[in-house]
């Protein structure tokens, strides 16, 4: 190994000291965040899987599971939504069901699908109105949404 001059060694030591101090100061935010997350870990690890999903996804997880439990995997459904992010979350759980997202329920579309799922902010009145439609049969209401079976003509 080539021998360094003493002044270069001293300069390097100062450089290392400054770099480390700057790194610790600038990295304070991430260190703080990690310590906070580490302290939360025992509580998080003690949750059951469904509870962990609810921590991340909120109520949409429970509604998506309700759709999964009330419809077969090869079902075709209309998904009424007013929040695109919640739609995307629901879709993650609904595959492989064929889903047609919709902002409004159109009766002429009912014949193409087996079910109608609705997840709307303050949707209670909307769900009641849908339930009054004789083409729809309420299967589940709860977790912020409602699921209807679509009655086919002649059934």
């Amino acid at each position: 190994m080539l021998k360094n001059s003493k002044s270069v060694q001293v300069a390097e030591r100062y450089f290392i000291a400054m770099a480390l101090i700057a790194w610790i100061a600038a990295g304070f935010t991430i260190f703080k965040r990690e310590i906070k997350a580490a302290l939360e870990l025992p509580r998080i690890l003690s949750l059951i899987p469904d509870e962990k999903k609810r921590v991340i996804d909120g109520q949409i997880y429970d509604f998506a599971q309700a759709v999964v439990n009330n419809t077969p995997p090869n079902a075709s459904l209309i998904f009424l939504y007013d929040n695109p992010n919640r739609l995307r979350k629901a879709l993650y759980y609904l595959y492989p069901r064929k889903v047609e997202p919709a902002l409004a329920a159109k009766r002429e579309e009912f014949d193409k699908h087996d079910y109608l799922a609705a997840y709307l902010v303050e949707g209670h009145d909307a769900y009641r109105a849908l339930g009054a439609d004789d083409a729809l049969e309420l299967l589940h209401e709860g977790h912020g949404g409602a699921i209807f079976g679509i009655k086919r003509r002649g059934r």
Partner: peptide
């Protein structure tokens, strides 16, 4: 390791692209 396996996926692109 501990934080990764503590919770399910969270990022938008993970549940609309990669993990979907």
């Amino acid at each position: 390791l501990m934080n990764l396996v503590a919770l399910p996926v969270q990022g938008y692109d993970t549940w609309v692209i990669w993990f979907l």
